[in-house]
Design a protein around this nucleic acid. Structure first.
Lengths: 347, 347
DNA sequence: GGCGTTTACGCAAACGTTTGCGCTAGACTG
DNA sequence: CAGTCTAGCGCAAACGTTTGCGTAAACGCC
């Protein structure tokens, strides 16, 4: 607060040129002679000039900034996407304002309005509880991209995607999961989902479809309300009764919490039941037992997202939606039914 | 891009008043009559007016925005701080631009310059690899707060804190850890730290001090270079040889990865060795075995950070530094040496 | 040396706000 | 009724950039 920030006019005075010249020189405009350009750059450096992006955005009518809304950065899967997004964004000279929606309608609305107020160049939203149309309306002329699974009418999870949507190929992933499960001899399969969000209906439907395609019985689906706080306890006891061979979970977090609750009711993974997750968060590979899951290269997802936005910015509209490839990683939670002599002798 | 954004002049025209009046009306200036104020607000709402914060920041000489730099949001502990920061910030009408430093000097410098360019009101940085003075210099007149442990000369970890620094009371935490370990009968204690960052030297010194104060032998300290990618493997084998009663880790992530590596070399936690972490990340309470750790209410940390910044903004300078209280949470990884009959019969 | 062309730079408007100050009309005071 | 006050609003400057257009000097050409 003490010393005023140095502006273009300060540099202009010191270099005895006009502000326009300084501006052009610093932006590398070729119509400025090399001599004055270097001279001006030197002075700018001496004065520790740092441009005011607010002023710039004002005249440019748009700031070199992306808005990114996530339900909760705390969730590892979202954190990874954010990271990738971040990296790619500032590789292209964009910065990103982050907002958490916290699965709350009003919070999300405020966040989106904030983006609009900042005149961000584009925004990516992952896992909103708002409808896609409301989001787009709130953001008005600004291009929007939906990361992760987006709610589409059940039954055509992989086709008729709304434009401006980038998500992992959950359907293919579920196919791989089911193939693996069948190969290992699991027969009865259950599904357990977290509380809210549109992703899980996609994954659930994908699982149902995958099973149907292979002439397997429909899965029992369990729904947990508050995964972080004991919401899976009843699910665990239900599973304890129904005794499916394996249970596939909405995501890794759900899977890990479920395993914990299963232990509490006396069921051992993978001895008594196989478990597979989704997302491959960092802790999936060091959990005990290590979690079988499907990885989606979340950071790539984030990176692709900004590529998406960039191209949609200069084309003026969003390009077609896209599915990200996905691969199953088999670890210790699915050795096959009854084969759960998991690291005997060590634990 | 199609329809131009609506501005104050649009509202002014429609309401047949001046722009100044509109501005004042919308900001609740009492010198505008209640009648016109509501009339203008109505029109603004009809037109879906959303203010241009860039223009505002330009005249206000400062944007209602905080910069927040973290090494990596993916790390759960940082994620939680970010979340708390976020919440408190937009409770006060501030938005936050996030940047990852990724433990890289140049990335951090770019990020800080970005903050300066945005003319953020204040910035909080957690776990920078830059020196505190360089950070402050880069950010010039803008107040800076260091979240988390900050590097201070060894030996006076808890006093002579540099101003503008907010961190958990690691020293007290380590005291609780040591007391707990002693009470449970652990005698030889090792310390394992992650690679970079200033936090761990603080915690290491805190552990050393805590042991010394209680007339216990100095700990063996291990240093891992790349925790995420097998860096703890050699540490695990070392521990396998030296056989300490317990090992306290720099943070939960390190602890969890270490436990995984220990299993790989045939050591069981807590049977063969006790483990305690630091931070209480979400997965600490569902790991197998569940991790004894010290919690620091990371979201509170984030919240306190913005309170800090807010008060430092209107006072014109940073208030004194502050230690956040911390408490030990005893779970399953420290039952006492040899008492590791951890959940027998279940796993 | 006149003419056109290029090079290198300056002028000034514009972006959307905020705010100090000035102004007017009506209310109030004596 | 003249003067003072106040409520309610408008004028215009300012914030720091960018950029279209103008222009002066330098240059090339015959």
């Amino acid at each position: 607060m003490t010393s005023r920030r140095v502006t273009l006019v300060d540099i202009a005075e010191r270099a005895s040129v006009s502000v326009a010249t300084v501006s052009r020189a610093l932006s590398g405009d070729p119509q400025i002679s090399a001599a004055t350009r270097t001279r001006i750059s030197q002075i700018a450096a001496d004065l520790k000039y740092v441009p005011n992006v607010n002023a710039r955005s004002l005249v440019l009518q748009s700031s070199a900034t992306f808005g990114l809304m996530t339900p909760d950065v705390t969730d590892p899967i979202h954190g990874q996407v954010v990271t990738g997004f971040q990296q790619q964004a500032d590789k292209h000279g964009y910065s990103v304002v982050l907002s958490n929606g916290f699965w709350d309608v009003d919070t999300e609305r405020r966040a989106l309005r904030e983006f609009a107020a900042h005149r961000v160049a584009a925004v990516a939203v992952m896992g909103s509880v708002l409808s896609q149309t409301e989001v787009r309306r709130l953001l008005a002329p600004c291009p929007v991209l939906f990361i992760g699974s987006e709610h589409v009418p059940a039954g055509n999870a992989d086709r008729d995607l709304p434009r401006g949507c980038l998500r992992p190929d959950d359907r293919d992933g579920m196919g791989q999961v089911v193939d693996h499960l069948i190969e290992r001899g699991y027969r009865t399969i259950a599904y357990v989902s977290g509380s809210s969000g549109a992703t899980q209906v996609i994954r659930r439907d994908a699982l149902i479809a995958a099973l149907a395609e292979r002439d397997r019985p429909e899965p029992v689906v369990h729904q947990a309300d508050d995964v972080d706080d004991g919401g899976l306890r009843i699910v665990a006891s239900q599973i304890c009764r129904t005794r499916p061979d394996a249970v596939v979970c909405y995501d890794d977090k759900t899977a890990l919490f479920l395993i914990d609750e299963l232990r509490a009711v006396g069921m051992t993974v993978p001895n008594d039941v196989g478990v597979v997750g989704f997302d491959d968060i960092p802790f999936a590979r060091i959990s005990n037992p290590r979690l079988t899951t499907v990885t989606q290269r979340s950071d790539d997802l984030g990176r692709s997202a900004v590529d998406f936005l960039l191209s949609s910015i200069d084309r003026g509209k969003l390009v077609a939606s896209q599915l990200m490839p996905v691969t199953l990683i088999v670890r210790e939670t699915t050795p096959g039914p009854g084969k759960g002599s998991h690291r005997k002798g060590i634990r």
